[in-house]
Structures are given as structure tokens and as C-alpha cells.
Amino acid sequence: MLKISNLNAYYGDVQVLYDVNLEVNDKEIVTILGSNGAGKTTLMKTICGIETKRSGVIEFQGENLMKVPAHKLVTKGITLAPEGRHLFPELTVKENLLLGAYAFKDKRKINDTYDWVLTLFPRLKERLIQYAGTMSGGEQQMCAIGRVLMSNPKFLMMDEPSLGLAPNIVDTVFDVITKINKEKGITIVVVEQNANIALQTADRGYVLENGVIGMSGSAQSMLESADIQKLYLGL
């Protein structure tokens, strides 16, 4: 579905990603592991075209994304739930969710998706008219995921969805990830520091270190790999 070849990205004059090659197949959950500052967030932003100083090829369903402006990606079925959630704090939860479908005009379909998102996150139903900035971290994360789902994505990227959340909410979030992958067939890329839960959920994994893809393989084999266990699982 998504094929990245020789991707280089720069933050100002500093190169952050070096010749990254990465492939995500249809209906897969892929996780990208890596320590702080390894370039995971930059990778996500580069795929979305937010960081525009880049070279290489990003291909999505056979189409080159390098020339597509960032705001057009959502109509192609690509979305990102960014690190730190980035909700619109002074809009209500409902408005936040509806903005997720901003790029689409089919009212009926939007309503259906809206209902589906609220069944996924019943907690949001109670909060619809609350300002997003006033909710707890877990609720904000649900709202952020709900918001990206509003666009009915084919390909969903999630940047650190577990960051700063209580363990039981992390479980809920990853349950939802599995659920939307199974039910709707959404292809998902999860960037995580919590390698344990990420690898248990994912089909395959990549390790990003200092802007270079270091290791890749099936999630099972990575869970069993000694290096991964030492570096990311803390065993």
C-alpha cells in the first residue's frame, strides 16, 4: 500500500532521516520503534508532507506523494493522529470530530461515521459539548483518534498514541487499533516507545535509529529478538 524508498528529510539544515526504505502492505498493522530523537515523528510528518524539505519517493497505492500538498492527503485516505494529540482546544469535542471529516461533503456518510466513532468511544458521547482542551489526557486521545477516523481513512498513522496515558487507557487505545484494523480493514502504522504493547498488536515492525532503519521483521520475531528485548523491552 505504502512504499517509501530512499527518503531523506531535513529539519532546517540538519538531516534527520537518511535513505529510509519502508513498506506497508494492505490491511497490516506496522509498528515503528525507536528511542527519543530517532526521527520517528519526523518520518510521520515527512510522509504527510508537513516537513517539506525532503527527497526520495513516497508511493501510496502506486501514486507518488512527493508532489501532493499536505492538505490533500486526507482525501486520498491518509491521515495522521499526531504526537501530543493536537486537538483544537477551544472547539467542542463534536466540532473537533466533525472537522475530521472537513474534506468530505457526503452528509449521510459523515453521519454514519460519526455514529460509528461514538460507539467506538462511548466516553466521548458524554463530552460532546465540552471544549476539547478541558478534557483529561485519555479522553483527548480518544477524541484525537475519533477525529482521524472521521475521514474514513484507508491508511492511518499514529504517533505515540500511548504517550502520557494511564495503563488501562493504553489498553483501550490498542484494543481500538486492533478493532478498526479487523473491522474496517484500515492499514495502520503505529509509532511507539511502548514497544511491548506495540509489538503485541502489530504484524510487523521496524526499528528507527538516528534516522536510519536498523532492523525490521515480523512482530513475533522482533519480540523474541535479544537486541530488541535488551534495548526496547527492558528485559
Binding site: 504527510c48 508537513i50 500538498p69 499536505a70 492538505h71 490533500k72 492527503l73 486526507v74 482525501t75 491521515t79 495522521l80 499526531p82 493536537h86 486537538l87 483544537f88 482546544p89 477551544e90 472547539l91 472537522l99 475530521g100 472537513y102 474534506a103 477525529r147 482521524v148 475521514s151
Partner: peptide
């Protein structure tokens, strides 16, 4: 409120 997020929502 959040230009980055707005772009992700498909807002030009």
C-alpha cells in the same frame, strides 16, 4: 488554534 492539525484535517 493549531495550524499543523488543521492541515492534517485537509484544510488548506
Amino acid at each position: 488554534q493549531d495550524t499543523f492539525s488543521a492541515t492534517l484535517m485537509g484544510i488548506n
